[in-house]
Design a protein around this nucleic acid. Structure first.
Length: 265
DNA sequence: ATCGGTACCTGCACGC
DNA sequence: TGCGTGCAGGTACCGA
């Protein structure tokens, strides 16, 4: 499900939980706890009030008043839902005051929930926010990487929050081939990429993200940015700009969709 | 220090 | 109907 725009949408939809108290926590699927003890985790959460909920890259940070963080990553299929009956893939149930219930669902279990006093290492070492990184810093970072641009955009220590959809869509808008070498993208081409990333992410957030299969926010609402995808999962369909069939190649073990005419190395 | 390749899971669409 | 295959928004870890 979740890249920056989807996680941002989910985090925003959790806003009604700020100020509420966690009465209890129950964990079923233990894989999403990544080895943490479910009883200790529940004890760490119990009784604390939610001070803030924010997105950080693809993570959701739930700040507990004076008591650390509940750190949530949605993986590929994670969903956070306010209320509703628990299902086959419900791994966590948080009971809140005033009758609130927060469920964590995740069929593939690539996501995780973690309690931590400080921000965990893997969160701290993420790169800058794509919507905040200034162009000179972005260009300088590009110049130091010998890898292909598609791989680099997926690397969370380069920028935090971009995933497969928005990498492909950004490269299309910038007119850059996914296999282009990052260190050779300079000047005008770098500028175009920086602008494309900003535009794509901003538009996607405004659309509530992309609902590819069953992604919904915490209140069950779908996003509609999938209607604006120009290359992602459009293999064989005509390019919206030139009509050439969109092609698919594997880069960094992930599908890359691009227009062979509009996107140059 | 940086790369690419592999592993981890379940569900779905497709062809036979 | 059922089975095998390939594919899917993710990251962690390994060895080169």
């Amino acid at each position: 499900m979740p890249e920056l725009p989807e996680v941002e949408t989910v985090a925003r939809s959790l806003a009604p939980l700020v100020g509420r108290r966690i009465l209890s926590a129950e964990f079923r699927g233990l894989r999403v706890l990544r080895g943490a003890d479910p009883d200790r985790m529940a004890a760490s959460l119990q009784g604390h009030r939610i001070a803030a909920i924010q997105r950080y890259g693809k993570f959701i940070l739930v700040s507990l008043q004076g008591a650390g963080y509940l750190v949530i990553h949605l993986g590929m299929t994670g969903r956070v839902l306010l209320g509703g009956p628990p299902g086959k893939h419900t791994h966590a149930i948080l009971t809140l005051d005033r009758g609130g219930v927060l469920l964590y669902d995740d069929s593939r279990q690539f996501g995780c929930l973690q309690y931590s006093r400080e921000l965990p290492q893997r969160v701290q070492k993420l790169g800058p926010e794509p919507l905040e990184v200034p162009f000179p810093e972005f260009e300088a970072a590009l110049s130091k990487r010998k890898t292909r641009i598609k791989s680099l955009l997926l690397n969370q220590s380069f920028l935090r929050g971009i995933g497969n959809i928005y990498a492909d869509e950004s490269l299309f808008r910038a007119g850059l081939h996914p296999l282009a070498l990052a260190c050779r993208i300079r000047g005008d081409r770098a500028r175009r990429l920086h602008r494309a990333i900003t535009a794509v992410l901003t538009e996607a957030i405004a659309a509530g993200g992309s609902s590819i299969s069953d992604y919904v926010d915490a209140q069950g609402r779908k996003g509609f940015f999938q209607l604006s995808h120009r290359v992602y999962q459009r293999t064989g369909e005509p390019c919206v700009d030139c009509g050439a069939p969109i092609r698919r190649v594997i880069v960094a073990q992930r599908s890359s969709h691009f227009c062979p005419k509009c996107q140059k190395r």
